[in-house]
Amino acid sequence: MLIDLTGKTAIVTGSTAGIGFAIAQGLAASGATVIINGRKQESVDSALKQLKEALPKAQVRGVAADLSTSEGLTQLQAAEPKADILVNNLGIYGQKDFFETSDELWQEFFDVNVLSGVRVARAYVPAMVDQGWGRVVFISSESGLNIPSDMIHYGFTKSANLSIARGLAKRLAGTGVTVNAVLPGPTMSEGVAEMLKPMAEEKGISMQEAGDKFVKAKRPSSIIQRIASTEEVANMVVYTCSPQASATTGAALRVEGGIVDSIG
């Protein structure tokens, strides 16, 4: 299967590092013009430099904007008024006991993980409908189904991503615009690597080994029994954004190594 996204413009939110960057790179490698997004100009510039070094012929631009705010969306739209592909990847995570999670933290997670995707989709999808083609992907998580007891606030937002993706797909029935959610599991992003670093140093093992031990200890239902790479997640997203995925919409597509113990 040859995925060719030449002539398509893709916005990937929260894409200066981790899964978002891998998605941006995968889309660019498939010929799309890719818009990198992050909150800080420095991180956007760094990601653009890294992407251009990896793919010298790639068509990439960047917009520094905090999409957890309406002002951030205004900045993004002013710089990039149109997109054919939208990947709502922006998200934060972190452990916190339910009884210690403040109203302010609940609101922050909602604004970043949920409302950012809602407002960006609301802004860009109508033009996709007008042209009769578009792809929208919400990056959820296996934690949206297997709610972690140590970060309920995070799991809640990832469940919300699933609801929004399914509902929006139904709202756009027959338009040629597909909407799907992709559910990664533990993935070796920069943030996860930083979390695993103390374990790796203490035990004298590689980061990959530390990641695999984490999966076996914290996600024992994993079938692959290892941590995934950002590229593995990106591969699913790139396919979902492709013309070949035209009959896939309203779906919750898992790339979590079989952690969720369900055949449905």
Rank of each mutant, 00 (worst) to 15 (best):
M1H: 14
I3C: 07
L5K: 01
T9S: 11
V12N: 00
V12R: 01
G14D: 11
G14L: 01
G18H: 08
I19R: 06
I36L: 05
I36K: 01
N37L: 02
R39W: 11
K40E: 15
E42A: 11
S43W: 04
S43N: 15
S46M: 11
A47Y: 04
L48F: 05
L51D: 13
L55R: 00
P56M: 08
G62M: 07
A65F: 01
T69Q: 12
E71K: 06
G72C: 06
G72M: 01
E80A: 10
P81I: 10
A83T: 12
V87G: 01
V87Y: 00
Y93T: 14
Y93P: 03
G94H: 12
F98W: 12
F99Q: 14
T101M: 08
S102R: 06
S102H: 05
W106M: 10
F109T: 06
F110Q: 13
D111F: 10
D111L: 03
S116M: 06
V120Q: 00
R122T: 11
A123P: 03
Y124I: 02
P126V: 12
A127T: 15
M128V: 04
V136G: 02
V137L: 09
V137K: 03
S140I: 09
E142C: 13
L145F: 10
M151C: 08
Y154Q: 05
K158W: 03
S159E: 13
S163W: 10
R166L: 12
R166V: 05
L168E: 08
K170C: 08
R171W: 14
V179S: 09
V179P: 01
V179L: 03
G185F: 00
P186L: 03
M188D: 08
M188K: 07
G191P: 05
G191E: 07
L196I: 07
E201L: 11
I205W: 03
Q208D: 15
E209P: 03
D212I: 06
V215N: 03
V215K: 01
A217H: 14
A217L: 13
P220L: 12
S222F: 08
I223S: 08
I224M: 12
Q225I: 10
A228H: 05
A228E: 08
E231T: 10
E232T: 09
V233T: 05
N235S: 14
M236D: 09
V238D: 04
V238N: 00
C241Y: 04
P243M: 14
A251M: 11
R254F: 11
I259M: 08
S262C: 13
G264Y: 15
